[in-house]
Design a protein around this nucleic acid. Structure first.
Length: 857
RNA sequence: GCCCGCGUGGUGGAAUGGUAGACACAGGAGACUUAAAAUCUCCAGGCAGAAAUGCCGUGCCGGUUCGAGUCCGGCCGCGGGUACCA
């Protein structure tokens, strides 16, 4: 005979497939404009189609799904779309490494990832799906580019790139390892190319000021953006040179510390400064030095951490305060041409970098301020106090002798302006956004180069300018450059033979407006104003903290630029009302080395832990274990969630990924615990079956319902504050309470249905099934969220800990409305308190109503 | 280098300035079972103690406070970003 338990087991595979079919059959998640309900737009940062989803994706999309489903239950018209950030380098790398075509590779990956994602049961409106490599999308992006060009938001200028002199190609920063090209191994050089730029710097002030309005963004992200934009007030002035070549009689410098002018001991110019370039032409020594400076990659990190190199040009300049005081002019490798004027004065006493430079080249170190009047002027390192700290100016020239750096800077600017030595100016660290990429797999920049007309925008009716399919990756470089026919075209202006721009756009462009496109993904223009008006802004944006600066800043700029060109309403200038930055899912990295000592990475599933360490396979070679880092395909430290889903179901994966760690924190992936989550969901399902068969009255109905209302309250607050792990802990606790309860059938039934509803954002399939098996009407997905009854949340008595001198010594239970005086008396009458006091008289008694009592002796 | 975070038991973590360790994993003991699995019950920060209880304890050092994991200052370690990885 078959046992009942066998017939009514929790079978997620069957349950999940069934309910997903019901949802999609009823178009439950299709977003349609409606005036009946408030709209709510939930968006998770869309994925790069690497081919496999990993636990970071599951975490990201599950969080968004919880919000989307919760908002649906609280009466909102929800838009929850999904797409693919599909252009980028890995597709070309794959084509080079394993053959094939970036397009086929990418669309194949998208199909695979969609297949892996759909079983998660996400509440996504798949009818809005698109990939940024769809010509329909990037054609609209080209239209935006043309509008931006017309509006003066785009221009061309020279900029430096990483140049591999062996492969003769431009390298991405990621392709430079220890200053060498990743394929050729050649020392990388910095080389100038003419490139397209967005004028984001024109919007520096606005992008900075508007940060204050982003109340629902994490303050750390706002702070990072503020520092990135880097507004500073300083002094710009010129040193007069004594013996510089013609045309370089004055050297303009910018400083944020004009108060240290009397501590100047040298002038430094960038190797890319016009003066350096002029000297380079005539002097082979200078040329050799500048060539040396241009070695290495373009990253700020590489430049800042490189050994400080200087070259004394022999040129001398006069100090603006004292024409007899001459300073040497050095070319220095750590000075950026992009910031300020590309020239500085060095004050070694108050800048560690200048200090090291001065020590190396035997330049004077002159303190201009000290901690106090008595302090020693001889410094062993740069003295760099906070600008808000009061110091003693031993070489001050403006303001009082005792003042803060900020006061001194203002006084120095005033003094200099009054004496005709330069002007106070505001500058920003933020540079214009270079969007040109010398690569195939990106959105073509829709312009044509004509010998007669110069740079000519493509006509909008010719869009999209589609990428040619017939390209090869057998030689390094951009295949568009050597394509036989694609490059040749007719000038849109004069019709004569001309050439297409072969640079494509930075993939950050693709991701800077996709959120707007989701509001009308099939529109024949970049957006549709009515849809944009209705759905924008994104009410809740969710994604990784690694995008805190670039992606979010570029998107904020794009929303403004799109408004200027009439593609978004002014109200969407800040496109993301609320931002949540989740932590990353990390994992150890397993590495061996090839014959050339280059790293080779291995998947966690290929590693076996033995007594002697981690090995590749059961008895393969030992592998190096590199500490945890963000899961990334290139490092192969990715864990495949598909195994967990097929073993335990999507609800288990969703429940587990939310339950174990706070969403904003990084989490080191471990597979243990997924099974426990499955057991818990089975327990809930079994309990539901048991309750479905119950009848009659019982004991403790009120206690059960009080616990239920407390749970409603806690889970609601938890979901609204992204405290998913804490909300789940409350659900565990309430499940235990319900399991032990002896309450009657009606109360238990109310409790299990409420539990199912509270769990439904996390475990939608299980909840749907419980709902149906209890004969409820309709879908739990579209049913309303429960509301906690205030009257059921208050209790008659409270338990208060009693501290003596801040240490917990006792606990008393008192009526909730007891006066402070009576609480004090009760506390002092407690046996443990009397024992601890040991006859001492309390000096002070602090009663925090409802919380704690502290007796101070 | 610079900017921004984070650091709590064996593990993941909880804690509006108010009982540190909720909830869970791994572990231990027990019940049920011929046995195992499954399920259920209980224990569990460290040290001392039979226990009651006491002392110590949130990376380290110092400060503010009646009271600090939480706020402030200084270190150490780890992570993210650093403008061409996405």
């Amino acid at each position: 005979m078959k046992k009942d338990a066998d017939m009514t087991r929790y079978t997620p595979a069957e349950i999940e497939a069934r309910w997903q079919k019901v949802w999609s059959g009823n178009d439950v998640f299709k977003a349609v404009r409606s005036a009946d309900k408030p709209k709510y737009y939930v968006l998770e940062m869309f994925p790069y189609p690497s081919g496999r989803i990993h636990m970071g994706h599951v975490r990201n999309y599950t969080m968004g799904d919880v919000i989307a489903r919760y908002k649906m239950a609280t009466g909102h018209n929800v838009l929850h779309p999904m797409g693919w950030d599909a252009f980028g380098m890995p597709a070309e790398n794959a084509a080079m490494a394993i053959g094939g075509h970036p397009k086929d590779w990418t669309y194949g990956n998208i199909a695979d990832m969609r297949d892996q994602m759909k079983p998660l049961g996400l509440s996504i409106d798949w009818s809005r799906e698109f990939a940024t490599c769809d010509p329909e999308y990037y054609g609209q992006q080209q239209a935006l580019f043309l509008d931006f060009l017309q509006a003066g938001l785009v221009y061309r200028k020279n900029a430096v790139v990483n140049w591999d002199p062996v492969d003769m190609t431009v390298l991405a920063n990621e392709q430079v390892e220890n200053g060498r090209g990743w394929r050729s191994g050649a020392l990388v050089e910095r080389r100038e190319l003419t490139q397209w730029f967005f004028k984001i710097s024109d919007h520096s002030e606005e992008l900075l000021d508007a940060l204050d309005t982003l109340e629902n963004w994490p303050s750390k992200v706002r702070l990072m953006q503020e520092n990135w934009i880097g507004k500073s007030r300083g002094l710009q002035f010129a040193f007069e040179s004594i013996n510089a070549p013609d045309g370089h009689e004055k050297i303009e410098v910018y400083t944020t510390r004009p108060d240290t002018l009397l501590g100047a001991s040298f002038v430094g110019i960038s190797p890319d400064h016009p003066l350096a370039k002029a000297l380079e032409r005539d002097n082979p020594d200078v040329a050799a030095f500048c060539t040396e400076c241009r070695k290495g990659g373009t990253t700020e990190e590489a430049i800042e951490t490189a050994e400080k190199l200087g070259y004394d040009t022999g040129i001398r300049v006069r100090h603006p305060f004292d024409t007899a005081h001459e300073l040497p002019v050095y070319i220095a490798n750590f000075i950026l041409m992009d910031y300020g004027t590309g020239a500085i004065f060095g004050c070694p006493a108050h800048d560690q970098r200048d200090f090291e430079f001065a020590t190396k080249y035997g330049l004077p170190i002159i303190a201009t301020y000290l901690p106090s009047k008595e302090a020693d002027e001889t410094l062993t390192e740069a003295y760099v106090p906070a600008k808000t700290e009061k110091v003693f100016y031993n070489r001050g020239f403006a303001g009082s002798a005792h003042q803060t750096g900020l006061e001194a800077i203002d006084a120095a600017i005033d003094f200099c302006e009054a004496n005709g030595i330069g002007q106070g100016v505001t500058k920003y660290r933020l540079r214009d956004w270079g969007l040109s990429r010398q690569r195939y797999w990106g959105c073509p920049i829709p312009v044509v180069h004509c010998d007669a007309c110069g740079v000519v925008p493509e006509k909008k009716q010719n869009l999209p300018i589609e990428l040619p399919y017939d390209v090869s990756f057998d030689v390094p470089g951009n295949p568009l450059d050597r394509h036989p026919t694609w490059r040749d075209c007719a000038c849109p202006s004069c019709g004569k033979p001309a050439q297409r721009e072969t640079d494509t756009m930075d993939t950050f462009v693709d991701s800077s407006w996709y959120f707007a496109r989701f509001t009308a993904p099939r529109a024949a223009t970049p957006t549709n104003m009515e849809d944009a008006q209705y759905w924008m802004n994104v009410d809740q944006y969710i994604g990784g903290i690694e995008h805190a600066i670039l992606h979010l800043l570029y998107s904020r700029f794009f929303a403004r630029a799109m408004h200027i060109c009439g593609h978004l309403p002014a109200s969407a200038s800040e496109p993301f009302d609320a931002l949540f930055t989740q932590g990353m899912v990390t994992h150890e990295i397993y590495m061996t080395r090839d014959d050339n000592d280059r790293p080779v990475y291995h998947l966690p599933e290929d590693i076996t832990w033995t007594e002697s360490g981690a090995r590749l396979g059961a008895d393969g070679p030992l592998v190096e274990v590199v500490p945890s880092a963000k899961m990334s395909k290139s490092k192969k430290n990715v864990v495949d969630p598909v195994n967990i889903i097929s073993a335990f179901g999507a609800d288990t994966a969703r429940w587990f990924v939310l339950s174990d760690s706070p969403p904003e924190r990084d989490v080191e992936w471990t597979a243990s615990g997924a099974e426990a989550a499955f057991k818990h969901l089975s327990r809930v399902w079994n309990m539901s079956e048991k309750i479905a068969g119950m009848s009659g009255a019982g004991e403790g109905d009120e206690d059960l319902l009080r616990a239920m209302h407390a749970c409603i309250q806690d889970v609601t607050l938890g979901v609204e504050s992204f405290g998913f792990n804490a909300a789940i802990a409350k659900l565990y606790a309430f499940t235990a309470t319900l399991q032990k309860s002896k309450a009657g059938a009606a109360a238990q039934r109310e409790a299990i249905l409420t539990l199912a509803k509270l769990m439904s954002p996390m475990t939608p399939h299980l909840s749907e099934d419980i709902w149906a098996r209890h004969g409820q009407e309709g879908l739990i997905t579209t049913s309303p969220w429960p509301v906690a009854d205030e009257a059921m949340l208050v209790s008659d008595t409270i338990t208060m800990p009693i501290q003596v001198n801040g240490k917990r010594r006792a606990e008393i239970t008192v009526p909730a409305d007891m006066s402070n005086e009576d609480v004090e008396k009760t506390a002092l009458a407690d046996a443990a308190v009397i024992r601890t006091l040991d006859g001492a008289t309390p000096k002070k008694i602090i009663v925090v109503p409802g919380r704690i009592v502290n007796v101070v002796v």
